[in-house]
Design a protein around this nucleic acid. Structure first.
Lengths: 138, 138
DNA sequence: ACATTTTATCTTGCATGCAAGATAATGAAT
DNA sequence: ATTCATTATCTTGCATGCAAGATAAAATGT
């Protein structure tokens, strides 16, 4: 199949479409908790990691420093996280969950597995494993 | 593998990361032409389709009407496209490439296949086919 | 014909996404 | 110690991404 005349064969096109659909599905899964998809992913990631540096979170969710700063700002305003200067390296902003953030992080976590299953409905376990393997190596 | 403790197993996480990497790769492939990744994809799509309604373009690239409006605005300012009211249905904005847009659309198209190959380097043809099939059905 | 509903696009407001550059603190080299 | 390079974060400016709602034109129902 010739990509040049079939946009649907272009990997960039396909990845963008799939990611947007996934983003909407995840957003729908956590919408009632009052967070956007990105905020939810960052909060859940922090819940899994315990605490982390701002840049570390950004790397995990593939956001650059400019973007993660804004996301953390909003999570802080919502009272879900706290920024504390690292004692050993005062350049570092160490991020902690507040009790409210911890609670919400866990709630999101409880929904991740069902949301994944719903989104991947129709694919066999082997197919899902293959898809994930491909996505990881890109 | 338990997703709840391993963000890297979450399909939303994996799709977002892969799509962002793809976006950067595509952007790098067309950067010297002076367009963003989204603008490039829309212009190339229009080049393939000949002409199209605004909404039609938005559906293809998975952008909603609010977003596609802005993208088309910028492409129009750059002198690459023209908006003409459809004669049969005056609600419809029919989008046409200008000569400059047509030329640029083709240049982008010439780079799509090489950029795909570079990005998918390391995967076999069968793996690529499987990946695309999965992405299409999500 | 007229009111209602639907459709295509645009507008507004806010949240990413990212390039480029500013700032401050650490580390390395002399 | 002082200079230089590096690192972590933040700021600015502009381009998506999208919810909600406005607007105008077309289709539908009575």
């Amino acid at each position: 199949m010739d990509i040049s005349k079939h946009p649907n064969e272009c990997i960039f096109h396909l990845l963008t479409r799939a990611a947007r659909r996934g983003g909407r599905a995840f957003k729908a899964a956590i919408e009632d908790l009052g967070l956007t998809a990105v905020q939810g992913r960052v909060l859940n990631l922090l819940w899994v990691m315990g605490d982390a540096r701002a840049t570390e979170l950004g790397e995990q969710v593939e956001l650059d420093s400019a973007t993660i700063t804004g996301v953390l700002d909003r999570l802080a305003v919502l009272g879900l996280i706290e920024r504390r200067q690292d004692e050993n390296d005062r350049r570092v902003a160490r991020i902690f969950l507040t009790p409210a953030g911890n609670e919400l992080g866990q709630k999101i976590n409880d929904r991740v597995v069902p949301a994944n299953e719903a989104f991947l409905d129709g694919m066999t376990e082997n197919e899902v494993a293959a898809l994930k393997k491909f996505l990881k190596q890109l």
